[in-house]
Amino acid sequence: MRQNGSGRDAAFEEFVRNKQVALVRFAWLVSDGSYAHAEDLVQEALIRLYGRWSDVNDPEAYTRTTISRLNISVWRKLRRETLRGTPVDRAELDRRLDALGGDGRLIRAVRALPPRQRLVIVLRYWCDYGDGEIAETLGCAQATVRSLAHRGLTRLREVWPPPTQTTTQSITGRTA
């Protein structure tokens, strides 16, 4: 049981201060929207966390699960339009991804996966979740997690390694 009342705000603030960058990174990776959309997911998840602060034992896991479910929830499956007062600007993010070279291309490929495949890949390879934890997060069977991961990796293999990198590795291997 976590503290409630006046202690809640201080503890919550410390949690947000320590984890907000990681949470926004997570939200950005699992969503196919903009950076602003990722921030919105995090905010929504944090609002829900704040309301249940005294009941949540692992706030980071709770927030990640909430972000995951919000991102693939029925609400979003219905693909209703969300209009916001600020325009989406992807140029800066695109520039930063370009600067990462092959890693940036792989991140783009991950973000182009269907939502549940993308979520499984991120939870497994960035959050180091086991299939059981992922299944719990998604609310599905472990076999479904394995299937989604397999399909996601199959898709990623279509774009990785990039052709030039294959050639380089091959040459390097022969030289060695």
Partner: peptide
């Protein structure tokens, strides 16, 4: 690559 998102 996923770790590199900190730079993005």
């Amino acid at each position: 690559a996923l770790d590199a998102t900190g730079d993005v």
